[in-house]
Simulated scan of single mutants.
Amino acid sequence: MTPPVVRGIYVGIDLALPNRKRTGLGLINANERTYVVSTLSTKEEIIDVILRQSPSLICIDAPLGLPKRGINRLVEIKARKLGLKLIPPLLGPMRQLTMYGMQIANELRQHGFSVLEVHPTSTLKILGMDRQDFVKFITSRLRGPLIGNEHEVDALVSAFTCLLHDNGCTEELTGLEDEGSLIIPRSDCITRVVSHEFI
């Protein structure tokens, strides 16, 4: 049985294919003003961490839906019109990652968790930050360990996108039916982020 979710806890996953020790996981606890990061390898590790933490929201950096036709979803087309560059879900190796992401998202939803698709590079672009800027920002506001690699940075960016979403500071780029959608920050929230309104 899945324990009840804990409000104010957000998990971000920078997904890589299994058994490569490249999946970054970041957790933001807004209640305690802390963060945790780790680099994982398998689906079982990801599910286990999430079941133990019971976050109120999970944001995954991977396509969580398939296009109705071609290699792009309407999501990718809408994102490009905003100057955001998403890799098509069915382009080369992305096909395998997309299927893996959908599998993990479905299992987490079966446990009762809310799961959203995000894209850390797009989040950072909208917020006017690069990875280094974000690390300075998050470590100045929250207590946590050293961040070991870019996968953990992107996972924390994903978790932060979850936090923004929970505070009504995102918009949704929707695809066709069953294609999924992408959550990105609202540009009019940048000043609220900079002023540390959320953390």
Results as ranks from 00 to 15, higher is better:
His119Gln: 01
Gln132Trp: 10
Leu86Ser: 05
Cys162Trp: 08
Asn106Trp: 13
Leu27Val: 07
Arg131Pro: 02
Arg69Asp: 07
Thr23Phe: 11
Leu66Val: 07
Pro18Ile: 05
Leu142Ala: 03
Gln53Gly: 00
Thr170Lys: 08
Phe134Ser: 00
Phe137Thr: 01
Leu108Phe: 10
Asn19Arg: 14
Leu90Ser: 04
Val194Ala: 15
Thr39Gly: 02
Ile77Tyr: 14
Lys78Cys: 04
Thr23Gln: 08
Pro145Phe: 12
Gly180Tyr: 14
Thr23Asp: 01
Ile184Pro: 11
Leu124Val: 03
Val36Glu: 10
Ser181Asn: 15
Lys78Asp: 03
Ile183Leu: 14
Ile46Lys: 08
Leu124Gly: 07
Lys43Ile: 08
Thr2Ala: 07
Leu86Val: 10
Gln53Ser: 09
Arg73Gly: 02
Ser122Phe: 14
Leu173Ile: 14
Val193Thr: 05
Glu44His: 11
Gly26Lys: 05
Cys162Gly: 14
Val194Trp: 12
Ser54Trp: 03
Val135Met: 12
Glu171Arg: 14
Arg69Ala: 13
Cys162Met: 05
Leu86Ala: 06
His111Arg: 09
Pro67Ala: 04
Thr161His: 08
His119Met: 02
Ile87Thr: 13
Ile9Tyr: 01
Glu45Ser: 05
Gly112Ala: 05
Leu27Cys: 02
Lys81Thr: 07
His111Gly: 00
Val194Lys: 15
Arg95Leu: 12
Arg33Thr: 02
Ile46Gln: 07
Lys85Thr: 09
Ile50Val: 14
Pro89Thr: 02
Met94Ile: 08
Asp14Gln: 09
Glu179Val: 11
Lys81Met: 10
Thr139Gly: 04
Val135Asp: 03
His119Lys: 03
Arg33Leu: 09
Ala105Gly: 05
Arg141His: 14
Arg73Ser: 02
Ala62His: 10
Glu44Thr: 11
Val118Thr: 13
Arg52Trp: 09
Asp61Ser: 06
Ile87Val: 12
Val118Glu: 03
Ser187Ala: 12
